[in-house]
Amino acid sequence: MTQSTSHQEPAIGLARLAQLFSMLWQFIGLGRVNWGRLMVIAVPYFWLALFFFIPFVVVFKISLAESAIAVPPYSSLLDWDLEEAYLNIKINLGNYLFLWEDSFYLDAYLSSIKIAVISTLLTLVVGFPIAWLIARSEGTTRTVLLALVILPFWTSFLLRVYAWMALLKKSGPINDILMAVGLIDQPIQMLQTDFAVYIGIVYTYLPFMILPLYTALEKLDMTLVEAAADLGYRPVQSFFAVIVPLALPGIVAGCLLVFIPVVGEYVIPALLGGSDTLMIGRVLWDEFSINRDWPMASAVATVMLVLLVLPIMLVRNRADDQEGKA
């Protein structure tokens, strides 16, 4: 009995393996391979692997090391010894524990998310009418308006933020005008406040909100709005009952395009914000350059990515589902 099974086993094993393999083959879609299509899909995947996945793996790897006074300034995880043929793996979870224990980081994450939520909503409120106007205009006007939205990208982002510094400062033109008009007697402090941060973010990210909104609103069938009016809806009602649901994919896309980069924003709070504007991007910079703790900085970055990516994937999936139903 034992003998027969031991003879049989390899055969069964192989059959199972083949079966498993073909299932896997089916699963990843190689069963009906279309090589041309595969090549086309491979390009973006290659791009993602090269510029997103590999850098992330490097960051993640550093986050498991210990900081050291050395070049590079962290310990190595793997120690190869070719002659003695051993591999020594040393993983340090201390950075993640520290992140958990010190409430400073949680505060920074929460504060970043708060700023990102508020500025995303502000951008939506400002961007929606603009996108509506562009979508409802015709021919050349539309082209010109669209060009105006994209035009600021022709100058450096940094220069535009510096321009805001000049505009908002105490001896700047905005204060001068307000004083000349007589609205204020003393120049008001706008720079180095959260107000300036919101201005900077809304200004910088507005095109990312307008463009997806425009795409959604352009496709919107105006006869539906008319029908709603005919059936007795007031404009506000038909806005929320007809326009918003139809523009939802654009709203979601615009909000994600603004929200994601704003959470990690470093330049705008550093230049326009006060020293008390707590954002995770600045904490990351401090860890990296002032504390000189690359592993800790990497742990902060990894956690930020995980905290951001998971909820966003959920939102996306839901949005996709809804789109599928509609």
Binding site: K61, P72, S76, L78, W80, D81, L82
Partner: peptide, 12 residues
Amino acid sequence: MKKKNWLAAMTA
């Protein structure tokens, strides 16, 4: 003892 740190070599 010759230790090789492959990642260091790659970054280098």
